[in-house]
């Protein structure tokens, strides 16, 4: 099921708390060396949008599909 998912992290709003990375059920995200959020497995995203919902800074968006 090929879907084009665009996951965007607003670097200005993000405080690198790691909530989105830790609780992603599909392990789509990873923390970079400075705590920044890296989208490493976008293809695995099932668009549950829990990262969006749990982000305290409204910094991560999941679009498309």
């Amino acid at each position: 099921m090929p879907v084009s998912v665009v996951i965007t992290v607003d670097a200005r709003a993000c405080k690198k708390c790691g909530i989105c990375v830790e609780f992603c059920p599909k392990a789509v995200l990873e923390s970079g060396p400075f705590g920044e959020v890296l989208v490493t497995r976008a293809e695995a995203c099932n668009q549950c949008r829990l990262c969006e919902l749990r982000c305290p800074d409204l910094a991560i968006t999941v679009e498309g599909g």
Partner: peptide
């Protein structure tokens, strides 16, 4: 979509918030 929520109900240009990283207020 969160982008719409930001636009309609937030002053997103004033982000980042003054809250500590991971603070539940944002939730």
């Amino acid at each position: 979509p969160l982008t719409e929520l930001r636009k309609e109900h937030f002053h997103f240009s004033r982000f980042p918030t003054t809250y500590c990283p991971g603070c539940g207020i944002g939730n």
